[in-house]
Amino acid sequence: MHGFANPARFLRIARWLTPLLLLSGIVLSAGSLAWGLWRAPAESLQGETVRILFIHVPTAWLGMAGWSAIAVASLVELVWRHPLAGIAARASALPGAVYTAMCLISGSLWGRPAWGTWWVWDGRLTSMLVLLFLYFGYMALAQASENAGQSRVAAIFGLVGAVNIPIIHYSVLWWNSLHQPPSISVGNSAMAPDFLIPLLVATVGFSLIFGGVVLTRMRTILADAQAEARLRRKAQATEGQA
């Protein structure tokens, strides 16, 4: 495991993996979205509106997966003091927040024609909005503690905030909500293959883009740290000479 702790080794892999993830993700999501927009059938009750599914579900999954990644990376950072884990956690925050916001916006655009309202304060919608604010809080903490040179606070916040993820998932089962229960569970689908297959492709595509953005941001953080360290060494060296 500590083999990946070496930034040089990580960078060697990330250099070719980043464009590969981004490009394959863009191809898959563009294809499945075009399919969802023009080829997928209308739904028997909802009609054409169902096409928002192909944006809404992948972004919802990644909004939740993003925080799960932050929580796992924070755990590794706290317990094993793995240097890349903290960087990975920080790198997941922005794409996670962007996808959560896109999930809320697409859900609102779906709710208006399907339910007759832009927004309700039911369990699912409220817990998803809480997730967006958790992301904002995490990004602020990570930014602040980065300057102070310690990231323990952000990692603890990342772990504690993970309690919201099962709440989001089970909100539609625990409480009466306007949002319907999940259509897909392990080995079981209430969704016809005409919707399910393009949805799965879109989810894979969006996830590849997510992975590519995480790698991009990890490389940014590493490059900034390396440049800063080098400048500091040089400043000390010139001071020593004078």
Binding site: T49, R51, I52, V98, A101
Partner: peptide
């Protein structure tokens, strides 16, 4: 209208 706005939001945001 709702479909195109949500797709545009998804594509531009990404």
């Amino acid at each position: 209208l709702f479909i195109y706005v949500s797709y545009a939001m998804g594509v531009i945001g990404t």
